[in-house]
Computed example of a mutant assay.
Amino acid sequence: MLSGARILRAALVLLASGGLMLAGPQAATAADPVKCPPSAPKCDVTAEDPGDTGDSDPGGGGSGGGSGDGGSSSGCRRANGEEIPCSVPGLGDWGGNTCYWLLVDPQPPADALVWGDNKPSEGAIYRPTLCPDFDYEGAGTFVPRDTFFPDGELGAAPTVTPAEVAQRAVEQMTLNGPDIGIVPEPGKTGLVGLPVWMWNNEGETTTGPQTVTASAGAVTVTASAKVEKVVWNMGDGTSVTCTKPGTPYKADYGKRKSPDCGHVYSRTSKGKSGNKYKITTTATWTIHWEGGGETGELTEIRESDTEIAIGELQVVG
């Protein structure tokens, strides 16, 4: 049994080379390599594999199968996510993640059962021609039949909003939690009452700015991300919110407090796990995007952590 992808590729290659004849109202018949299941009163067209065309685009491996002949547009997708032409000469328009559909000509009378509760003024009746995702082998298999589609529903690429494209841009970014700098450093012990310096080492993936452009169809969006703030949970029940990356400590700063991101512990870390305070940092990334005639804001949260030991100065009399 040919896979749905090979059926579709084979059919498009044959169409492009003029080697595929399509069915009439009841069944598809043609000289080899076209076949139609005998149990199906109406069916799609399948084709024997003309040779492995690999993963190239449908129609790309056949004579005359260039992009100008394989389909009039792209951007539609099968149920498995594979992108395929929205319209193919001879097969019709893609619809419902199932089949290519051709307009029935002439259309059935307005009182025909196939219309159901729909009216000819609202759409038209189409016939399935190629349904690569259906398996006609076995009992209970569904056979697509002539079906009503509202005007404008077939052959249209899925509508993508600028906000959705913006989210795709964010997914292409590398937004990390803070790259923690702290004094006293891990492995050393600070003292109660002395200042602790904290900072987020600056970089494109830790503080920003970071800019990515993404496109889908005719919509292009540019998104720019930067860290708005970092909240430091100090492990002693307090938290510090820093709206700047923080200042890296230097030895000549002595016992001064950090000008923009610091803390002072009032008790030791004795009794905590490992006799250390666990510090958790939470970075809030703000992403501004614009494109497709719209603008917007998105937020992403990233975390990282470290530990610090705080002791007490012992005075021996």
Rank of each mutant, 00 (worst) to 15 (best):
G4S: 10
A5Q: 15
A5R: 15
L14R: 15
L14V: 03
L15I: 04
G18C: 12
G19E: 11
P25R: 12
A28I: 07
D32I: 00
P33F: 09
V34F: 03
C36D: 06
P38N: 11
P38L: 14
S39N: 10
V45T: 15
E48Q: 09
D49I: 05
P50F: 00
T53V: 09
G54W: 03
G59H: 04
S63G: 12
G75K: 02
R77F: 09
E83D: 12
E83L: 13
P85E: 01
S87N: 14
P89L: 05
G92T: 04
D93S: 12
W94E: 02
G95C: 06
G96D: 13
G96T: 07
W101V: 02
W101F: 07
L102K: 15
D105K: 09
P108L: 02
A110I: 06
D111E: 10
W115L: 06
G116P: 05
D117Y: 09
N118E: 13
S121G: 10
L130P: 00
D133T: 15
Y136W: 10
T141V: 14
T141Q: 13
P144Q: 04
D146C: 10
D151F: 13
G155Y: 00
G155E: 02
V160E: 05
V165E: 01
A166N: 01
Q167M: 07
R168F: 03
Q172K: 14
Q172L: 13
Q172V: 02
T174H: 05
G177F: 02
P178T: 08
P178V: 08
D179A: 12
I180S: 00
G181D: 00
I182D: 01
T189M: 02
L194S: 09
W197Q: 03
M198D: 02
M198H: 06
W199S: 11
W199L: 04
N201M: 08
E202I: 07
E202P: 03
E202A: 14
E204I: 12
E204D: 10
E204W: 01
G208M: 00
T222G: 00
S224T: 15
A225S: 14
A225G: 09
K226D: 08
V227Q: 01
K229T: 11
V231A: 00
N233Y: 08
M234A: 01
G237H: 07
G237W: 06
T238N: 15
C242G: 02
Y253K: 10
R256F: 06
D260W: 11
G262W: 00
H263F: 01
V264I: 15
T268Y: 11
S269Q: 05
N275T: 12
T281Q: 13
T282W: 03
A283E: 02
A283C: 09
T284E: 14
T284F: 11
H288C: 04
W289N: 01
G293V: 10
G296Y: 07
E297C: 04
T299M: 02
S304A: 11
T306L: 03
I310C: 09
V315T: 12
G317K: 14
